[in-house]
Amino acid sequence: MVLSPAASGPPAGDGTGEHTPLLSVDRLVVRYGAAVALDDVSLEVGRGEMVALIGANGAGKTTLLNTLSGIITASSGAISCRGRLAHVPEGRELFPDLCVDDNLRLGAWKAASRDPADVYELFPKLRDLARRRAGYLSGGEQQMVAIGRALMAKPDLLAIDELSQGLAPNVVQEIGRYLVRLNADAGLSVLLVEQNARLALELCSRAYVLETGRIAAEGPSSHLKEQPAVQRAYLGGHVAT
């Protein structure tokens, strides 16, 4: 799969992490009863940065995003977000009986403007589907609606959970290009949570590896791709160049 950011303009992040952190998570612990879902997790996302969080099923990625969104309460630790965060949930989670336009407008519940013109400009295909019920869309179209709905909140940071889940590779590639363009043109920060490590490391300049609730590795994507442990666990033993 080719998802070179260079094809659509490079991500704004420089891979060093030396930004004013837009999001900073400090020693976060989340428990479900006796089970520890997140254990001492710390991470940062700078302004205009695209950061990946990769990990296997059950590593705690979705728990982390739900904690950032306030759906789950942390047991301890601190979260500081110096801007608006919008969350694109795993599985899209649209309002299936409402049309595309309504789905988008509901994303602006707390925003000043409910006009989805910017989203239609980004995803022209959605303009033609505006009156169609979201439940009748293809997976790729639903993912565009989910991202568009989150963008309606005018976020500074877009947290996307499993962008590629259930989508054909060419659709993932298309949506990935949109994200890279948003990042480059609008300076939108992105926290991309993915099982598909290859995709995440191609799209994002920096990444964290989450394993059983703990950060196991972090650094520029180019460095992580070279680490044998990351290659073995997430990249099928080799890196495509």
């Binding site: 949930p89 299936p96 009986d97 409402l98 509901l106 519940w109 707390k110």
Partner: peptide, 20 residues
């Protein structure tokens, strides 16, 4: 808009919360 917000809550409370 409020009515659609109620429909959204009925349809998918999790997504409704994420939408604010």
């Amino acid at each position: 808009y409020v009515g659609k917000g109620m429909t959204a809550c009925a349809s998918n409370p999790y997504a409704a919360r994420l939408s604010g």
